[in-house]
Design a binder for these strands. Structure first.
Length: 200
DNA sequence: ATCAAGATTACCT
DNA sequence: GGTAATCTTGATA
């Protein structure tokens, strides 16, 4: 059994947690179906001094969970149709989190295909399309609002466990995707040459 | 009460 | 490369 990430892992500077999450294992258990993946792309969002962060202009009903202690799960709906999943970081009150942008599917690919509306016949190469984006992976892993506010340390539905050690030289960095503010900050981290990264 | 924007994706040319 | 789909949220009146 893989070991769960400890509380202290999350109570660190957000960019450190973001890099640290690369290679770690994400698991969901929904409707008796288990899905497992390896995190290959993330973005850091800071509660202060980061205009692209949901929490940068203070606490609201939506972003409330971002102000909880590190280790909580923050899920929100974007464009009225896709969910995005975040890992809250640092001590209570920071309003910071890491967006999980892509994972490499490990277990439960048949369920993922059904949830994503892809035929069971797709090649391993085409399985790129299962989880290569924040909205896609939430669909494949059945992540939605019911998981928002849960703690990764205690949740039955969604868990973060140890995974592969990623060497510093295999981590690339660049500007975050899909935002219009604070585009100069290079807080997107991803694993070099990985097929499931949403964009190179 | 109204309104514009949004941490996206799929499908079109 | 462009754009429609789809709806909640947060800001403004």
């Amino acid at each position: 059994m893989p070991k769960k990430l400890a509380r202290d892992f999350f109570l660190r500077p957000t960019n450190e947690v973001a890099k640290g999450l690369l290679g770690k294992t994400l698991t969901t258990l929904v409707g008796g179906q288990k899905t497992v993946g390896r995190i290959v792309e993330v973005e850091a969002y800071l509660g202060h001094g980061d205009d692209a962060c949901h929490a940068s202009r203070g606490q609201t009903k939506r972003n409330k969970v971002m102000f909880a202690e590190g280790g909580h799960c923050y899920v929100y709906l974007i464009y009225g149709m896709y969910y995005c999943v975040n890992v809250v970081t640092e001590a209570s009150g920071y309003g910071s989190a890491v967006l999980i942008r892509a994972v490499e599917p490990i277990e439960g690919l048949d369920v993922m295909k059904i949830r994503r509306g892809l035929p069971p016949t797709i090649t391993p190469r085409q399985s790129f399309n299962l989880t290569s984006g924040p909205g896609k992976l939430c669909q494949a892993f059945a992540i939605d609002q019911k998981m928002s506010g849960q703690q990764f340390l205690t949740s039955k539905l969604i868990q973060l466990t140890e995974g592969d050690r990623i060497s510093e030289k295999d981590i690339l960095q660049g500007p975050r995707i899909g935002i219009s503010k604070a585009t100069d900050l290079e807080w997107r981290y991803f694993i070099k040459n990985n097929n499931w990264v949403s964009r190179p």
